[in-house]
Design a protein around this nucleic acid. Structure first.
Lengths: 228, 228, 228, 228
DNA sequence: TATGAATGAGCTTTCATTCAT
DNA sequence: CATGAATGAAAGCTCATTCAT
């Protein structure tokens, strides 16, 4: 954990340091990241670094909390209200959040991907809870709920499906961001909303259709399609 | 490329070195891998290393060719015949190969994952062909064929779906291997075949159902399920 | 160029390092010089070296500027005034400076000789000016002036003579210094001045006579000699 | 000294090795020369090298004997006959030999220059004879003879003048070779003789005039010049 | 508290030399 | 006698971390 000294720093300096760290960790995994690169980009003295952080891993975990915070912020910034979501609207929202995050904070998204890659050692067991880590808890809950609500087919292997959704969520965002091309820049600049733009929603529809059709007890979308 | 000296080495020694390298590259990306670790694990002198390889990147790319070769070997070892495959049987085969590879050569699979992770920079454009790299060509072809054969719905966005299948293929194998638990060890030991064991095939059925239902023009499986 | 860190060092330490470097570069050309030797003689850590200099070539070029500076210092310490010099007195001064430099800073003189030897590739053409490098510009100017002043014979091939004077200047100093024997030590100790001591000046007279007689339009010295 | 094994080698192979060594030693002083470079250029096995020579210094000194031999060959190839030479004709001949050697065997000349540079530590005393080394014996004898024959002025400091001629001889050849430009190539090709070509001899005349005028008791050349 | 100089272990790479075949 | 694989010392250089100011 960063020292009190770091927490008391004037915000601008703190942000400067965090920004430098984010740039570094977005480019390299913790193991290859360089203290030198960070302090020189942040414009602080090498000694100061060690007054703020125990070591580079300490800074890295601090950055990870920032990543989580921003990710949450993005999720909450999406207009839909959690309570009223049916199962698949929730899933769509999660994926939209991932893309929005990718577009608005590509460096943080990159850090998140590194982290996921290096910590998701499937088969590794969390020594505290004894549960498998990596399989995303959120999707587990989502799928269980979906079955209860009769939205999701009962034959679906919840654990595996949750894992699959996890890797799709983690991997698809950069692809979609890139597919959006010019539109992504506009979203990043705040000139366009991911939820209002119809070409973007078409792309999402397509993805959601695939997933929904794969999971749903009674998939509507394709029926609509073929009945059109 | 490894030197002739390396290629002329007695097989046992060559394997020793390759094994040490595989262990290293399965644990760390090229950038963090250490010559020291490799030579000390292989039990050779440091100077010898540089008689065999130009540098560590040279060894790494040599190991990558081994990975490809073994992967192909696994794919070809699967009993199904390419010619007679319908669309989704082909997909199942690809995924089974990924799992089989993961079980039989977990280190090589890890190396492959590192490689994929570090080279799949989605959005990076191949300067020669102008095409997006990372999206898997194989799945592109598979989906296009599937549409032609009326197996896959015409509304599917082929490019996106191919990318999605790519990340599922790359990510699901370690999960499945881990799910198989004891059975995985038996497969690794050659006591069990992935294609014959029914609990394993059940798991595959489940995954394939999700994917097939998501993509298929006229998904059969679930119908069968509900009619049971 | 040495880093600011090096420039901010306490003088004693800086001198210590420069002295170690001078010792090394006086004994070996840049190509064979060793960082290890320098740091161990200077009593600093290897890491420190690379905080001061980019690499050994950086240090070497720094030492070369010291050599130039000291050489100039020696030239300027000679009492004669440039303005009033006739042609051959100027030449004598240049040669005296070379000897004085050799005696007072034999290591720097050695470094200068290495540098001259390795950079004077006669026949190599300066890509910017298109002129031959290595032939000494100073002597060129000196000879041209001498011809204008009617001090030097018009038949002299200026380019070649300049080159010849250059190599004589570069090579004769160690010889003369050695010839001076005990006297050289006294000069080095500041107990004797090169310009006041008559045995020394006799030696110079002899050399100058040879050169002057060889170049002069109307050589006086030998006439005097034979008329004595 | 090279081993008997080396001496028994078929000539073509011996020449191959010597040629590779010459190329290396012409580019670098012994201290920086590389066994690797030599064996790979010579196309022999590394182990063979150590069957022919004790170490690289051994090969180097073998090459030095070749240099001396070839130099002598060049000197003797010049048409003038030693016996009939007056003093300055002898000097001209020595310098012409140096230039001829430079032109016909530039690599050997380079090796010779390296050797001269690294061994001529003026002031170093030969431990066996007790004499100063580096000052050229030949020029000593030449000057002494010249004085006896009344060709050279008695006031000349023989030791110093010999040294000076030594460095001029050693340094001027590459310059002159370069001055000759296209003509040098013709000489190297055997299409032109250094002693017959009048532009070349003009250049030599100029140099000799300078040296002769500087040393001669009764210099003729300039007199001729002014009387023209 | 901020600084940046100092450190030395560690890295990759080179190379002369030895030695088994 | 020829070969070329094996070796390890030593090179240049980097870097996280400590410490004195």
């Amino acid at each position: 954990m960063p020292t009190e000294t770091f927490r008391n720093l004037p915000e601008s300096k703190r942000l400067q340091i965090e920004h430098a760290a984010i740039t570094e960790f977005a480019a390299k995994p913790l193991q290859s990241a360089s203290v030198n690169a960070i302090v020189s980009q942040a414009g602080i003295a090498k000694g100061s670094f060690y007054q703020y952080f125990e070591n580079i891993a300490d800074l890295h975990s601090h950055i990870l909390t920032i990543v989580s915070k921003k990710k949450l912020e993005v999720i909450n910034s999406l207009p839909l209200d959690n309570a009223n979501l049916d199962t698949f609207r929730y899933l769509r929202r999660v994926l939209q959040a991932a893309v929005e995050f990718q577009i608005r904070y590509p460096e943080l998204a990159s850090i998140e991907r590194f982290e996921r890659f290096y910590s998701d050692q499937p088969g590794s067991i969390d020594p505290e809870t004894g549960e498998r880590v990596g399989g995303d808890r959120r999707f587990h809950a989502f799928l269980t709920q979906g079955i209860l609500h009769d939205d999701i087919a009962t034959w679906v292997d919840v654990d595996m499906a949750a894992f699959m959704l996890g890797i799709v969520e983690g991997g698809i965002a950069p692809y979609l961001a890139e597919r959006l091309g010019e539109r992504a820049s506009q979203i990043a600049a705040g000139e366009l909303s991911i939820v209002d733009d119809s070409p973007i929603q078409d792309l999402f529809d397509n993805l959601m259709d695939i997933l929904e059709a794969g999971l749903a007890r009674d998939p509507q979308i394709r029926k609509d399609f073929y009945s059109k």
